[in-house]
């Protein structure tokens, strides 16, 4: 097609795309916060002896893990305002970022719940019994003995979930949010797509570098956190 690719221009696009980084980070952090809160509530339900709570939690997890995030975004962003409109609630004031945060929080919360449940169950039940045997109350035992151990178990999965969430923030462009990918698209359309490849390569590099950093950070934190605890020496 007569295009000439100018790969040397790629590094130059990186700072331009990074101007949208604060938006991506905002989406990431808010979604992370809410997904952990929702995930914790769902975990309590899935571990409870109450059959109804249990069924609701398990159903929620299975639904949220099964539905593609993009489908969830279309459902909430396009479908929800219509439904709300029909019952007289106007949702035009809700920002696009809010929709994205809601969708990412919901879909990630299922992974968070699975992570928390597995980590909780991984802690030997003798640990709680020992805490009880010295006279601790249930909450104290959880806060001082169970949670810190479960957290150590969860760190690698948590790191993974954050990386997946970070990649999914790129779906924000589908509703017109100017996040990293939205910005890349804007730069590319401003020059009628002639530099498309270079811009998207630059975008890929940004995502890859950040994931690389997150992955190693998670490994480092796990190592620090569980230092000394697993080594079997005499």
């Amino acid at each position: 097609m007569g295009h000439t690719y100018d790969f040397k221009s790629i590094p130059g696009y990186i700072p331009k795309i990074m101007k949208a980084f604060p938006v991506t980070i905002e989406i990431l952090l808010l979604s992370l916060l809410f997904s952990i809160i929702i995930g914790a509530i769902v975990t309590v339900g899935s571990l409870s002896k109450n059959k109804v709570c249990n069924a609701i939690s398990k159903g929620y997890i299975s639904f949220m893990r099964g539905i593609p995030t993009l489908v969830l975004i279309f459902l909430l962003y396009l479908g929800l305002p219509q439904v709300m409109n029909s019952i007289g609630v106007d949702m035009s004031g809700v920002s696009k970022v809010a929709y994205i945060v809601a969708c990412l929080s919901l879909s990630t919360s299922a992974n968070m719940a699975e992570m928390m449940r597995a980590a909780y169950l991984a802690v030997d039940k003798g640990q709680r019994e020992a805490a009880f045997s010295v006279g601790m109350k249930g909450f104290t035992a959880f806060r001082r003995i169970i949670f810190p151990q479960a957290f150590g178990v969860a760190i690698p999965t948590l790191g993974n979930n954050i990386i997946m969430l970070f990649k999914e923030t790129s779906l924000a462009f589908t509703v017109g949010v100017i996040d990293l990918l939205g910005k890349a698209r804007a730069i590319s359309s401003a020059s009628y797509g002639t530099n498309r490849l270079e811009v998207y390569i630059a975008t890929g590099i940004i995502f890859w570098i950040i994931c690389f950093v997150l992955e190693n950070l998670s490994k480092f934190i796990e190592k620090q956190y569980t230092r000394g605890r697993k080594k079997a020496t005499s």
């Binding site: 030997d124 003798g126 640990q127 019994e129 020992a130 805490a131 045997s133 003995i145 810190p148 151990q149 150590g152 605890r229």
Partner: peptide, 11 residues
């Protein structure tokens, strides 16, 4: 209580 498997707090 002193347990068969010690059950020391691992953390």
């Amino acid at each position: 209580m002193v347990f068969q498997n010690y059950n020391l707090f691992q953390n």
